[in-house]
Design a protein around this nucleic acid. Structure first.
Lengths: 222, 222, 222, 222
DNA sequence: GATGAATGAGAGTTCATTCAT
DNA sequence: GATGAATGAACTCTCATTCAT
């Protein structure tokens, strides 16, 4: 293996790495400030200061302030979906397991990254058409993931056949459940210590709810 | 001294009425524009134009733009709580009835006043500390109402005793369920025609969830 | 004396009196607020509130806000000139007596009406061309009074002949002396208790100054 | 390591210089307009136009309009105190010399910079609490300078001992004398040609006044 | 690539003044 | 005469964005 001929020269790699580090630094600063002071209140100057760059540099890496917020939102959802996917991939896949993904959301995502949760559920709402459009699409992906997980469960569980609209509703309801728990108990109040208990109860609630809907559908079809 | 003479002269009454009409007109204009263009994008000038007043007049009736939003939010929640209270007051009060209040929310509130729903769930989020504080308090009242209704049900249903934190969680989950349904099916998509069906299914879900949590608690205490 | 035929009907007199009372009330409110919060900061609404009238009423009695300030300034100068004239009219009129008028200014005017002094020396300065023009004219009258008093003294004292420009300068210097004392010891610091002593010393200073200038002129002409 | 290399690169120096030039240009424009149209009437837009910058640029260098006025006032007082210090430093230091500083004020400051004089004595008065507070402090410094000069004279002249309050009063009176002369003969009327003569006479007046107070104190103590 | 001074449109807000009642 | 709601011009100030260096 001749070390003398790298396909991509080392220098380019380093530059690439540095570039990504700078982007990460800016995003980290923006995340912190948006969560702390709010998207509107935090100025590009504030972000530049915290990231230890000049204002102009931010504009080299990001189109504008909105882009920053959208990138942040994307990253949040990406991370969240990764976590959920990890949870959903776990073997021995039953409905009960499916419902466990809420734990992942509350413990692995919200508790660990409270600022990301704040961005996702607060600072990203009510910020104009463009952000809203992106947000909608991201949440649809999230909903689709959940729906996908549920479909998988149904398939494995055997002969449960469930209509797509109902499946989607279940996903929507699941998102609503957890979003409100996060907002209420983590963003508004800071009761992180109660989260494990609340998470358990929410699972119970969700599981019963889902079962009831499945049951109802079966009966309806019968 | 003839008692038939009104203590308050007619003229004063008319002035009072006109004043309230003007306030209502301004709020209506703000509501429309905030829902349509967004809180940030709609300017005080826009609102004044639509309300057919001058900018200054808006400031005669409202402290500032934020005040306008907060007033709007208050009115939304007031209206919503009135509706829910009406639903909750209905006789023959059982758990199943309790769960019907979601219908009231979706059909009597969101569908009839989609702009109010948009204000409440979108334009009122992420608009800074003051608005957020008010929003939190209003949602706590809403949650408390639901909790109150549930307590009433438990009392009537007999010997069901339920811990306050759990009761609160149920209320929070209920809010989450319906908030997400409204956002997903009415604000994002406009699928008002599916609402009745969705509403039914959500009731089933909610009822099962609540029952499961009550059951769990009874067992836990046993 | 037939009481049945008043030249001016009683009602008219009463109305006239009431009108003047209202004007006085408004001016008093304006004086207080201008001195307290400053001319710019005090709004017409503030003045109306304090005077217990509506905004519109102020405009029935005064052309505009500037008019209010100018009227106030006029009244101040009128009162001040009255006081000074009283002092200057006192018999046994010598140069030393002339210089006593400063006492009148400090004790009878500034100490008794600190708000008027504040209007005259602070709030009336730097408020635009119209006010400045009026102020200039009022101060010229004031200067002319002092000059007049001094001329009277010179005439009585015998053969002292003094050129008009010098006389004017002396008047200007006198105004400067007392204006600064008032500003420094009453508006900036509140050392009213030191005023008698300071007043005495200022008289000594003034007397010596005036004498020196008179002396110089005599020598110059000789 | 060659010592000839400058620690601070040339470019930085040039930038620094340019920055100061821009600040000076803005201040010059503000000074001109405040003196001409008045502080209230001159808008930030006017200043920006005259300085050939955009409005925003003014706010890059100055906090707000008031800051501009205060900076201007500071600069005036700084310049004035420099001039006076130069005058007071002159050798052969006698009371007569001390009194000459008025010449410096009238000829070197007011006549040369009539706009600065207008700012200092007119536009800076009656502009609200913050400006007034700064003004008071600046005038106290000015008064202290004069007092200091007088103390120096007394020390050199021999055994003249003078109480601090009296010394301060003399300084205050001196300021009053010259301030009024400047206002009367330069701001109100434009009689710059009479200034030399007036200045002489004011010196005579001041000198006699000061001497009289010193004399009085000596006698009082005897 | 990075900088940060310059931009300038645009917003919210104030308030002296008016005038129909 | 008195009222106070309505006006609307004018202001200060912000800040996302650009671009010459």
């Amino acid at each position: 293996m001749p070390a003398s001929e790298p396909e991509v020269p080392r220098r380019t790699l380093r530059k690439q790495r540095e570039k990504e580090q700078r982007i990460a630094a800016i995003l980290a600063a923006a995340e912190k400030l948006f969560a702390q002071k709010g998207y509107q209140t935090a100025s590009m100057g504030d972000i530049a200061d915290l990231a230890e760059f000049s204002t102009g540099t931010i504009y080299f890496y990001f189109k504008n302030k909105e882009d920053l917020l959208i990138r942040l939102m994307n990253d949040c959802v990406y991370l969240l979906r990764e976590s959920l996917a990890g949870g959903l991939r776990s073997s021995d896949f039953a409905l009960a397991d499916f419902c466990q993904v809420g734990q992942v959301f509350l413990l692995d995502f919200c508790s660990r990254y409270p600022e990301k949760a704040t961005i996702l559920f607060r600072e990203t709402v009510g910020q104009g058409a463009e952000v809203e459009e992106q947000r909608k699409q991201l949440f649809e992906k999230l909903t689709a993931d959940i729906q996908g997980g549920l479909e998988e469960v149904c398939r494995r569980e055997g002969d449960i056949v469930i209509s797509a609209p109902l499946m989607e509703l279940i996903a929507v309801l699941t998102v609503g459940l957890y979003a409100q728990v996060a907002y209420h108990y983590l963003i508004w109040r800071d009761e992180s210590d109660r989260i494990p208990e609340i998470s358990d109860q929410t699972v119970t609630f969700l599981l019963a709810g889902v079962n009831a809907l499945l049951q109802q559908q079966l009966e309806g079809r019968a």
